[in-house]
Design a protein around this nucleic acid. Structure first.
Lengths: 216, 216, 216, 216
DNA sequence: TATGAATGAGAATTCATTCAT
DNA sequence: TATGAATGAATTCTCATTCAT
């Protein structure tokens, strides 16, 4: 970006960007906490400390705001995954790392889980029209497929593992535990969120996944 | 239709029961489709073909109606699980059967997944006060623990497997796939609900779970 | 209407009807005063002394409410026209009477003019789907055509007069004066609504119309 | 585009005038299409291709903008009437020409009709404070009065015709047909805007008006 | 002269719930 | 047991207008 003479444009732009970003974060929290239907535009404005009208100024509608939040959430997790540089690790370590990462990311970003739920409750209608989401997500599966193939060639992994299936299993084992922690706690009468319980869960997940991919 | 005025108490009771049941089923579908916040009492009445006021007569409030639906959903799945008679099977077959059952039940009862999501979005506040739910759910874990122990004793299962962890893993692998089918389809550009895809998923799940529990 | 045993139904029905009627009248005044876009549902409720929600309960939307008002307005004027029994008068008297009636009705019902304006501003989109309006309005033109034909046969009227054209001319001469009285007054600096001015206008109209239809 | 900084005053003025004119035309169309209450300042800016703030810079408020549009509309029609040079024609021809002109002007300028309606819906409150409107409008009636008097003196017109009444009648016959074409079409199930229909209407109008003013 | 950002007051519409019978 | 009528408090979205540059 070239510097402008009097920089007013930059300032203005920065304010607009900041406002949009503020709204986006506030909306993410609101949607995460209450779901799409339960979220209130008023509360988003409050959280953001900005005028409600501004939300419509930048995002047109509650639905478009939700889509923006969703796309950002996908972009965030995929960006974090990229940082792992799984392709540079030995296969087994890469799978273990991905399992840990998934667990830790879901743990640190509970909003991601509920956003997914909201979108699926609505049959994915927001994402349907979003090419952005597909683009951000496909690379992960490709990377995972390469790792699995590498492991197989090196003789450490069993063959015939579908990358998507494996990814869904890793994600699902983390997701169910964290997403449904309240009902599970209520049912089993046991706090699932103590450090020890969390450690045990990750340990179990790794055992299951590694036990599956490793040859014998 | 029996005449109301002179109807014996039994008949009236039966009518009342039928109305409640009708409302409950209608509510289940409504909550499943729209979530707790998105559900509309008006639509429940419409679905039930009954007056809206009657819903309040029987269930007091939207929240209590939701709790009733939720409790019924848990009761249903646990009842179905009881029918499996897992305790009477050889351990490995029991685990395989439980995996299949979980998958098939979620597939046949998508409402169960979204009801769980709704309740967890609200931090399980309805279930908190429900002793009924805990009672219906604990037996499954106990049965599973017995199976695992039996398998260990017979030398077919590895030791140290936590029943709840295993159950959560089985459920999670099915749940994530089915609950998030819309976003997954959008992202991977692949229909996850074809008979072939469904078959593959169950096959994968069984491989992972059996691979984990079986010794060596 | 047969009397019901306990009359509760009738009472209920009557209340509902009364509420709808009250809303309709309030809405007529509001739409007449402010136009469709300028009308406020809140104010309609206030005028009616009823809960705003009830307006939606009975009329679904502002637009449907407007349509109901419009249809009622047409029904009213045509009913009044029917009362004239023009068909029973000598032709010249019938035309004079219709002219007077039109003038007086517009004078007594200024809301009719502004309702028409609102509907035409919207390209008649409400009426488009209303078969009711056409049915109520056609008879007038038919009656007028018969009168013209009768007058022609009796030798008092000139031939070749189109009933619709004549009706539009009569209506137009009254309409423009009354509908635009404020701008005309501002422009001509002359109060057009004094009894004398009104009398002169009707007199002029009758002269023009009778001068036209009468043979020579 | 001249450079803004160094632009001579004349250029700037010309730009400013052009902007104002652009806004005025855009506003005229917007007010004509949606009425005063239904018009949107945002849409005016869009139509004009100019920033919304500029509208306030030049016209202060929506109401003042409407007044400016209204005054321009009156100025336009009166200017066109001046071009007719009715005073130079034989009386009967002048009346016929005025009738044709009124019809054709309303036909070509439907916005004039709806602007009038809007202003009258608001009881002419914008025009009240506008001396400009009165000034532009009075001459027409004076000219018409002179023509009527000339016709009477020449023995071709009947006496005692009020110029304003006649003008209102001519205008009204055109106005009602064109302003209410949508409701009339809906009601009579007949397209009033075909070339033939338009021709017939003008012919009818001329017959009525000439039939009235001509002696005998 | 020109413009993008921001806002308070309101607008139509919705919703869970209660009233009255 | 059943139901149509009624309501207060939201809820999403809109609009004329102003700010800041």
């Amino acid at each position: 970006m070239p510097k402008a003479k009097a920089a007013p444009e930059e300032t203005r732009t920065r304010d607009a960007d900041r406002s949009q970003q503020t709204i986006l974060l506030a909306a993410r929290d609101e949607f995460a906490q209450y779901g799409l239907a339960g979220a209130r535009v008023d509360r988003v404005a409050e959280r953001a400390g900005l005028n409600k009208r501004l939300i419509y100024y930048y995002f047109s509608s509650k639905d478009e705001l939700f889509l923006a939040v969703l796309e950002a959430a996908y972009a965030d997790i995929r960006a974090a995954e990229q940082q792992l540089h799984l392709a540079d690790m030995p296969p087994a370590q890469a799978i273990r790392r991905l399992t840990e990462f998934t667990w830790e990311y879901y743990l640190a970003h509970p909003e991601f889980l509920t956003l997914l739920n909201s979108e699926n409750l609505e049959h994915g209608r927001h994402l349907e029209n979003s090419t952005r989401a597909r683009k951000t997500n496909l690379p992960l599966i490709e990377t995972l497929a390469e790792i699995l193939e590498r492991g197989r060639r090196e003789g450490v992994f069993r063959g015939g593992i579908d990358a998507m299936q494996l990814y869904v299993s890793i994600a699902g084992m983390a997701y169910f535990y964290l997403n449904n922690k309240h009902t599970l706690s209520a049912i089993f009468g046991r706090d699932l969120m103590t450090p020890k319980a969390l450690q045990e869960r990750l340990s179990h997940m790794s055992d299951v996944i590694l036990g599956y991919v490793l040859r014998n």
